[in-house]
Design a protein around this nucleic acid. Sequence first.
DNA 1: CTGCCATTTTACCGGC
DNA 2: GCCGGTAAAATGGCAG
Lengths: 80, 80, 80, 80
Amino acid sequence: MSDLNSINTQELRQYIERIECVEEEMDAAKADRKDIYSEVKAVGYDTKAVRKIVRLRKMDKMKRDEEELILDTYKSALGL
Amino acid sequence: MSDLNSINTQELRQYIERIECVEEEMDAAKADRKDIYSEVKAVGYDTKAVRKIVRLRKMDKMKRDEEELILDTYKSALGL
Amino acid sequence: MSDLNSINTQELRQYIERIECVEEEMDAAKADRKDIYSEVKAVGYDTKAVRKIVRLRKMDKMKRDEEELILDTYKSALGL
Amino acid sequence: MSDLNSINTQELRQYIERIECVEEEMDAAKADRKDIYSEVKAVGYDTKAVRKIVRLRKMDKMKRDEEELILDTYKSALGL
DNA sequence: CTGCCATTTTACCGGC
DNA sequence: GCCGGTAAAATGGCAG
């Protein structure tokens, strides 16, 4: 904040509002996901299994990203 | 699913992709929030306190929503 | 534990028994609560509404505690 | 409640207080358990494993209780 | 038996 | 870089 030992109320308020805004987006997306899972269930799938698949795919993706990052690191280290 | 005892791969795949899509939105929003908190910290605020404020405000909202709901419950209980 | 790389069976057993003991208390309290709700229902109240009231009151308490805490945070931030 | 369509405030209040009382006990027990796990960790055990043991033992106990119940049912059915 | 709610587990963030 | 505490996800249990 610009002035130490004093709180700039306007500035703080704006940060808080920005945070609350993105949190609303998060909540909206969460609600969407919930709806999709309801549909998945309604149509006869085992949601627990589906959740597991999603989780596994996310892990795979992270793993691949990680490897790619390492590869990039090596490549740039080698000046490629 | 259209056919019992068999998994419609295409259908399932589409559900999973829809889920992954909203989860990407969630991750993006999460990253945004993280950035905002970094900025908040960089500019000199105590992020812990700011987080607390955000939480408190969310609790206020929830409390108001709940109270409204309970009021409805009472009203319908009284036949209003 | 007293000896590294080896498990003190007696010690471990005692910890587990202590945990199980408090869990029994938890279960007992849970059963008591269940009984009270049964009584509440038997005597004609809408248990759902009562549960909501209890939850609201708990939220109120949490909120007050949080606010007190954040006040302390501010005070110490201001060197009071 | 004694009088339909009207809420006996005193009665309701007392039920709520009884509920809150047992919930406080639950919270206290919960806090105790938390402390024990902290100690377990501090003294060098893997809390995750200990949790698993506790869960397994609880399952075993439930299983035994179940079997005993069945046995009792049979016995009383046979007039023993 | 279905949906909701509590508990548990898991992941994240800030501090030391 | 771990660790303690805090938020999110998943699982299990219970009331309706």
